[in-house]
Design a protein around this nucleic acid. Sequence first.
DNA 1: GACTTATATAATAAAACGATTATATAATCA
DNA 2: TGATTATATAATCGTTTTATTATATAAGTC
Lengths: 116, 116
Amino acid sequence: MQTIHHHLSIDHMSQLLKLISDPTRLTMLKVMQSFECCVCEFVEMFDISQPAISQHLKKLKDGGIVQEKRNGHWIFYSLNPNYPHAEMLETVLDAVVEQSGRIEELTKNGLRVSCN
Amino acid sequence: MQTIHHHLSIDHMSQLLKLISDPTRLTMLKVMQSFECCVCEFVEMFDISQPAISQHLKKLKDGGIVQEKRNGHWIFYSLNPNYPHAEMLETVLDAVVEQSGRIEELTKNGLRVSCN
DNA sequence: GACTTATATAATAAAACGATTATATAATCA
DNA sequence: TGATTATATAATCGTTTTATTATATAAGTC
């Protein structure tokens, strides 16, 4: 299967880079490279309020980078496999240090949400 | 020759992405992918003041992405070939639409500075 | 050595961004 | 159906970013 690369305008690329450059969002994305997460897990993971988490996730969703899926009370977020620039995103995320320790921490403290 | 990849912290990557995400700086970098440019050329190229241009170039230089070289009156900027994350930068720049039209425009208007 | 040209720096103002608090919505449970 | 839990939205505030204007520096020219 051949990957089709299409060029981005300066403004489009600029927007995309801004979107992933925030340290909280970048961490979220790196975590989601390995794990699907629900909002409350992100809330535990960072030292910011729940609305702040929601707003970051909204930006990522509006940018098409992540997708959401509801399961009962919980809404799970994961990388959108159909994101048009997934390859570039991957290059960036691959260059970032692993963040799976954050998930291990949650598991250790019994805060991981795994509904079936 | 083998490329050595080292992982960046979230904060380091975040800083780097912020640095290249500004549309003016991103355009400068794309142009410098093909051309060495002096400050006054950038001044002609954008609709912002000369000090604004200088400040953008300073940020790029402080971030280690570009290098400067004086030639008489002029100071020429180019991509720093020793930039540690040149490969990632290249991936990003390669995904951006060509900006060489901006240089052609300068040439057409006799504004290109080429001191031997 | 004074003048001009190219560039940098400093101070400041406007805009963009990310946080907070308060509140709304949506799903489940008793 | 009323209470609880998870998440989203709205309003607002402080910080950061990027622009502007004014001024300084540094190199070449007459």
